[in-house]
């Protein structure tokens, strides 16, 4: 089994992780009218890159939501970063 890194728990079995979405998508500004095409693109279109990608993943046992950087062809994990910020 491959191991994925959780920013909170460290390296864990890949089966504990759940793929959520591509990282960096910006929700359309709903204070302005949004066209059907823009909504559809936001909801459904993806970059789906072959190679390096940044994605939002969830480590299900601890519920940590984080960014996973990996290569979709070689399946190598290139790094992870937490999405939560420390309380100031």
């Amino acid at each position: 089994m491959q191991q994925f890194p959780c920013p909170f728990c460290g390296l864990r079995d890949e089966r504990e992780f759940h793929f959520a979405a591509e990282a960096g998508k910006i929700r359309p500004d709903t204070t302005q009218p949004v066209s059907d095409a823009d909504w559809a693109a936001y909801l459904h279109n993806r970059k789906n890159p072959k190679g390096e990608t940044r994605e939002v993943w969830i480590h299900t046992p601890c519920a940590e939501v984080f960014i996973l950087k990996r290569d979709t062809l070689s399946m190598a994990v290139l790094g992870c970063e937490p999405l939560r910020k420390d309380i100031p």
Partner: peptide, 13 residues
């Protein structure tokens, strides 16, 4: 598979 991929190969899970 559960992990999005372009790898044309199998895996254990």
């Amino acid at each position: 598979d559960r992990v999005p991929s372009y790898g044309q190969r199998g895996n254990m899970p």
